[in-house]
Amino acid sequence: MTFTAQIKVMPLKELLDPQGKAVKSGLDNLGLNNVQDVRIGKNIVLQIEAASADSAKATAEEAAKKLLANPVMEMFEVSIS
Results as ranks from 00 to 15, higher is better:
Val38His: 08
Val35Lys: 09
Leu27Gly: 03
Leu27Asn: 03
Asp54Lys: 14
Met1Cys: 08
Val9His: 04
Ala22Ser: 15
Ile48Lys: 07
Leu15Asp: 07
Asp37Pro: 00
Met10Glu: 10
Val35Phe: 08
Ala50Phe: 03
Phe3Thr: 12
Asn43Ala: 07
Lys65Trp: 01
Asp37Gly: 06
Met10Gly: 05
Glu49Asn: 10
Leu27Thr: 05
Val23Trp: 07
Ala69Thr: 00
Glu49Lys: 12
Leu16Cys: 13
Val35Cys: 05
Val38Ala: 07
Val78Arg: 01
Ala56Trp: 01
Ser25Met: 14
Val38Gln: 04
Leu46Trp: 08
Val38Thr: 07
Ala22Glu: 09
Ser52Asn: 04
Phe76Asp: 00
Gln47Cys: 03
Ala63Phe: 03
Glu49Ala: 14
Glu74Asp: 02
Gly41Ile: 07
Ser81Ile: 06
Leu68Phe: 08
Asp17Met: 12
Met75Ala: 11
Leu12Arg: 15
Val9Asp: 01
Gly20Gln: 11
Val72Leu: 12
Leu27Val: 05
Asn34His: 14
Leu32Asp: 06
Gln6Asp: 07
Ala69Cys: 01
Phe3Leu: 11
Leu68Gly: 01
Asn70Tyr: 04
Arg39Phe: 08
Asn29Asp: 13
Ile80Gln: 03
Asp17Gly: 11
Val38Trp: 04
Ile7Lys: 12
Asn43His: 12
Lys66Tyr: 00
Leu27Tyr: 02
Arg39Asp: 00
Phe3Gly: 09
Gly31Lys: 11
Ser79Phe: 03
Ala51Cys: 05
Ala5Glu: 02
Glu74Val: 12
Gln47Pro: 00
Val38Arg: 07
Ala64Gln: 01
Gln47Ser: 14
Asp54Glu: 15
Ser79Gln: 06
